[in-house]
Nucleic acid binder design. Structure first.
Lengths: 204, 204
DNA sequence: GTCTATATTTGGATAGAC
DNA sequence: GTCTATCCAAATATAGAC
């Protein structure tokens, strides 16, 4: 029992066993898709990144597009769970929104950043059906935001429409992947603070 | 003289003469690149859009990448001129920032939207050299923003770092192309107002 | 589960006739 | 300035041996 719990925690922490080719392929795909884009990453490069040849990739996935879909699916699950954790960890609505912002920035710049960046910015590389599927998965994630923003509106913490506010926030946060350098002079908390600062009329 | 001035005004207003294949190719490229992405748009599609065959495209441009570069170059010039116009049209710093926001949203959703969207979101499809070239062209555009935000900071209209603020704003505005529908119930002025509302601590 | 070998398609680009 | 014809490279995907 304790062994299986341990192995489960390893999976949860997203430290795939080294011989799990499928997981390693997904990790490599997330990284390469983020760095070079889906179209400019070949199945051969994917294969090379995990030390196999291109033909073997199709033993694990039925198509290249399926790999992108799987990267996004697993990423969204982690995004939802992170955001949910952040949401319940706060007492006040103001603190909750700070935690949500902090969590989203952490997703964008922490260990999960490759998959998250791909999920944010490369959904147009999926065909229409798969795109709809991903969009519907993202709804649960967005609902956590909308509930918090609705609360904030009712409590007078913000005075802008929750939908519009969330969408502006999505852009502001997502775009940080193109300029914010984790480990630089500005900490993630600093950044989250700045975003919060824009969001709330009166703070402190 | 009056004829040539008229023709110049046509060019300025960006109404290419119908037989100007080069201009029509650039327009079609902007539209197709925006709709399907640079990599998923073939030279054959580009050619078809203006009624010629693929080989003929290379009489006008030396490569497909050159077309993307040219779309971005001409777009950035228009962006700079729009922003400059907006900047000088306002008396106060607060009004200036509103005009800048309004102008950027107009660029993103008006007749220039295809090229602007491509310029915002597809620079990674260029090779390193061309990417640097575009980035350096964009500097002039960004400097207009930074000057206005610096002014606002000095006058106490905002209390956040101009660089960070601009980057968050870039993301918030740019992302509107994925959700805002021009011609819907929310006008561009409404949208600009909402963005301004987030930007300023005290307004009115 | 991986490799070898290869089918098949598509895309960017060129040369030369008109 | 466009067309015809075509080259060449690269990519996804498959089949079958090991």
């Amino acid at each position: 029992m304790s062994v299986s719990a341990y192995e489960l925690s390893l999976q949860m922490a997203r430290t795939p066993r080294l011989d799990d080719r499928r997981e390693r392929l997904l990790d490599a795909a997330a990284r390469l898709f983020r760095e070079h884009g889906y179209e400019r990453t070949s199945v051969r490069q994917l294969a090379e990144a995990v030390g196999i040849l291109s033909g073997s990739v199709f033993h694990h996935f039925s198509s290249k597009e399926e790999i992108l879909l799987e990267v996004m699916r697993s990423t969204i699950e982690r995004m939802i769970s992170s955001l949910h954790e952040a949401s319940v960890s706060a007492d006040t609505t103001e603190a909750r929104l700070f935690q949500l912002i902090r969590a989203e920035l952490e997703l964008l710049h922490g260990p999960t950043r490759d998959g998250v960046a791909v999920t944010f910015f490369q959904w147009h590389s999926l065909g229409p059906d798969k795109q709809r599927h991903i969009l519907s998965m993202r709804e649960e994630y967005e609902n956590i935001w909308l509930e918090a923003l609705q609360q904030a509106l009712e409590q007078g913490l913000i005075d802008t429409d929750p939908f519009v506010t969330r969408r502006l926030l999505t852009g502001a946060n997502g775009w940080t992947i193109y300029w914010y350098q984790a480990g630089g002079s500005m900490s993630l908390d600093d950044l989250a603070g700045q975003v919060c600062h824009l969001l709330f009329r009166e703070r402190k």
